[in-house]
C-alpha cells in the first residue's frame, strides 16, 4: 500500500468566492485520490479564465474535523479541494 500523502488545508479566511469549506481549514487529511486538473472555480466565479489546477479528494477523520469527543471519531469525510489550498505535511503519527 502506497504511503499516504498528508495535506493540511490552509487556514486562510479571505473574503470573496472560495471553494474550501471553513470547517476544514487548518485541518489535516490525506489524499484519497487525485482527480485531475480543472479550471479554478475561484477565478471562473469572477468571469476570468480558470487556471487549470489539480483537484484532490482529501479524506479527514471526524476526530480531526470535530475533535476527539465527536460521536464517531474514526469515521471519515472526503472533500474535494484544489491544490492551492493544500500544503503537504508529515504524517501526524509517523512511526
Amino acid at each position: 500500500m502506497a504511503e499516504r500523502q498528508f495535506m493540511r488545508v490552509r487556514a486562510d479566511m479571505p473574503p470573496g468566492h472560495v471553494r474550501t469549506p471553513a470547517y476544514l481549514r487548518g485541518k489535516t487529511g490525506w489524499v484519497e485520490r487525485k482527480l485531475g486538473p480543472f479550471p479554478n472555480p475561484e477565478e471562473l466565479a469572477y468571469g476570468h479564465p480558470g487556471t487549470a489546477l489539480d483537484l484532490m479528494r482529501v479524506r479527514f477523520t471526524m476526530a480531526e474535523v470535530w475533535g476527539p469527543k465527536t460521536a464517531f471519531p474514526k469515521d471519515t469525510i472526503d472533500a474535494e479541494i484544489y491544490t492551492h489550498w493544500l500544503e503537504p505535511v508529515e504524517p501526524p503519527h509517523a512511526t
Binding site: P15, P21, W66
Partner: peptide
Amino acid sequence: MSKTSEPFDGRRWHDMGG
C-alpha cells in the same frame, strides 16, 4: 449538521458547514 467546537473568525455567512 454537526456543531463545531471552534467557530472560525472570518467565516462567511453562507459557509454553514458544521
